[in-house]
Design a protein around this nucleic acid. Sequence first.
DNA 1: CGACCATTTGATATGGATCAAGCGATGTGG
DNA 2: CCACATCGCTTGATCCATATCAAATGGTCG
Lengths: 228, 228
Amino acid sequence: MLMQGANSNSSLTPSLKRPAVRMPASEERAGSIELMGALMPFGRNSEIFGENESADYLYKVVSGSVRSYKVLVDGRRQIGAFYVPGDIFGLESGDTHTFSAEAITDCKILVIKRSAVMALAARDPDVARQMWAATARELARVQAHSLLLIKTAQERVASFLLEMAERVAADGLVELPMSRQDIADYLGLTIETVSRTLTQLEKTAAIGVPSSRRILLRNRSALRRLNA
Amino acid sequence: MLMQGANSNSSLTPSLKRPAVRMPASEERAGSIELMGALMPFGRNSEIFGENESADYLYKVVSGSVRSYKVLVDGRRQIGAFYVPGDIFGLESGDTHTFSAEAITDCKILVIKRSAVMALAARDPDVARQMWAATARELARVQAHSLLLIKTAQERVASFLLEMAERVAADGLVELPMSRQDIADYLGLTIETVSRTLTQLEKTAAIGVPSSRRILLRNRSALRRLNA
DNA sequence: CGACCATTTGATATGGATCAAGCGATGTGG
DNA sequence: CCACATCGCTTGATCCATATCAAATGGTCG
């Protein structure tokens, strides 16, 4: 399943190379989770894991960005989350992934064997607590996302921009790694509505759109006011 | 904050009585979390905790049912979850609750001090793992709820009925503890739409509605087909 | 330059919201 | 025990935000 990352795209061959730093087992302690994984490259649009695959690994974005999504029976795609450098993903309840994950851009992902984490967590309460905390953070994100989905188009787009700004912006300029279609599928809207809403926000001077992937936040408090 | 359960309603005085079974500290082991709490009664519509209050306790429904919700700035109320006997709630990311919780019906809630759980988890990896698992289950539920919110009215109502059926039904007959308004706020619809959708499902013989709080699932596969 | 894909813009359709009224059950006071 | 108020729910009529269908524009890469 991990290998699918390779074939669905590109000439990248993510040969699972040993991480540079590897502590002897006795040294594995709280905070060392990140030293337990292997750094793997994924090409744009390649699959990192698929829905219903067994969740044998955890993932941490080192560079690039990732979308998690689910395709509904009627063909609609719902994006559950965008992950940017620093984010951990692949935390799921059971032993199988409930979402798929794809690289939005070329990216480097730290891939960590879940069983190793579990084993470590069984010995080290602090590691267990860290995993709990990571899951709880994810829970909070999903809850916030739920709240998005009951808002109006303007509110959703405004919330999205503010969210991305927090995570990825250099002083007011948000560089979006994802397409309008990705945004639409994240917000539960159509690309047309996303596009129209952006032009609308531009007209009211809340934002600027120098290029389609670059959004300048001119008036954050106006956006926050829309945040309902 | 805990006391609000008492005053906002009824003559019940939830005097924090000691639980019947109380193990000496040395005996507190995995699975004993439930012995660490106090059983408290809450009257219908009374508040169990409020948004932004510090999350000092975890809760487990023993009898009755509970709604968690958030009131948005514009006055709309979004219900995040319904909890029935056996469910744990009040797990939040940080140290403050992000939702409020109210008793839908009179209920009995096991109230557990979070710090006690945390302390125990620090010593006992299995407890920590259990808490992680509980949080992960909650995460899965919220994710499922997110997916609901992008569906059509029919799909949302059908999914809701199937969800409640799994949790609360005695062979096909779902006894709803909550009002149409609660359902509407959970599904991100209006009560009119919920009502209309139910009559519509009744006409297609997918369900029966002997009384407004009792729903008979006549044709689950039809509902599942709607589940998109 | 030309083909292709992403995005924007325009015209129309529609699902669910909103506004408004009717109905049935439950409870209260006479 | 019945008249009446109240509350929760259903049903009806209309409106509106967003979807859908369709076309134009712009940006990128061979």
